[in-house]
């Protein structure tokens, strides 16, 4: 009945769900960005900002998807590579910069 490969603390599963929650947060931020960009008619600048936010959201999704796939392998998952952590953070920062450009 016992499964030796499985961590009793479910650490990989918890980490996977943490990535899912974070993706959800990024989705909310991207939707708010789209709403702001297209508020009061679609201007050219608004459409560009909206497209940029969509691309950044897709970038975040890609990082999260890769990490979730890595965590799903049986046995010991590898640690998160700094490159991917930085990628996720840069997407977040870029969304904030788009937001600042839209707000001002």
């Amino acid at each position: 009945m016992t499964q030796p490969d499985r961590d009793p603390g479910l650490q990989p599963e918890r980490t996977r769900l943490a990535w899912r929650r974070t993706t959800l947060s990024a989705t909310v931020a991207a939707i708010l960005a789209a709403k702001t960009a297209l508020h009061g008619g679609a201007s050219a600048a608004g459409l560009v900002a909206c497209a940029a936010c969509c691309v950044l959201w897709l970038g975040f999704l890609l990082v999260a998807h890769r990490r979730i796939r890595d965590l799903a392998v049986p046995g010991r998952p590898t640690a998160l590579a700094p490159r991917w952590a930085t990628g996720a953070v840069l997407c977040t920062v870029a969304i904030a910069l788009c937001a600042a450009a839209l707000v001002v």
Binding site: A18, R21, T22, S25, V28, A29, I95, V103
Partner: peptide, 23 residues
């Protein structure tokens, strides 16, 4: 390492929530 990663993600969610708050 995974616990450290989850803490990182929790901070990232806080950051995304602040950005959402700005919008």
């Amino acid at each position: 390492s995974l616990a450290n990663e989850r803490t990182f993600l929790a901070w990232l969610r806080t950051a995304l929530a602040l950005i959402g708050g700005g919008f």
